[in-house]
């Protein structure tokens, strides 16, 4: 058992972990930030996506120990300082980019990473970047549209959500 400390959404969190403890488990159970979801065990679905030192990471695919000392951002850290929805979050609501909400935290975190790398992606670029995140509800139409809108692009010509 090893003691690890990391910053999660600006708060220092410490805990004792086994070597096999996953970062996703640490975030959910030690930090109590249950917005990060675990949808598979093969790093295929992306529901557990968080940012570690600014990089998009599937937290079920990283040991908690590996994140010792890291700066982690989860969905709980994505709202504006006043508590209102951030730009990407608001676009997801505006364009009905979520239904059951389970994949949504991972989608938002991945979208944030995409727009940081590529502020005005094409539809094809959005779809390709999302290919590591599964959604079973939306058919992706409104997720892609929401991300395009969050990038400031005109989405009025895309079929209505």
């Amino acid at each position: 058992m090893t003691n690890v400390t990391m910053t999660i959404n600006g708060r220092s969190v410490s805990g004792t972990v086994e070597g096999r403890t996953l970062l996703s488990t640490f975030i959910r159970e030690t930090a109590g930030a249950t917005g990060t979801h675990v949808g598979c065990d093969t790093a295929q679905c992306g529901a557990c996506t968080v940012h570690v030192n600014g990089a998009s990471v599937k937290s079920c695919n990283m040991f908690a120990m590996e994140a010792d000392g890291a700066d982690v951002t989860t969905i709980e850290g994505m709202a504006n300082a006043d508590g209102s929805l951030g730009t990407i979050q608001q676009a997801f609501q505006d364009h009905h980019g979520l239904q059951c909400g389970f994949c949504t935290p991972g989608m938002v975190m991945t979208a944030a990473a995409l727009l940081k790398e590529n502020p005005t992606p094409t539809e094809g670029e959005v779809r390709e970047y999302l290919s590591g995140n599964l959604c079973r509800c939306t058919g992706y139409h409104n997720i892609v549209k929401a991300i395009m809108a969050a990038s400031g692009q005109d989405v009025s010509s895309i079929a209505a959500e």
Binding site: A33, T34, T36, L85, F92, L98, G101, T104
Partner: peptide
């Protein structure tokens, strides 16, 4: 959506 988008579901 608000709770799902903020991790409070």
């Amino acid at each position: 959506d608000v709770r799902f988008l903020t991790g409070t579901g």
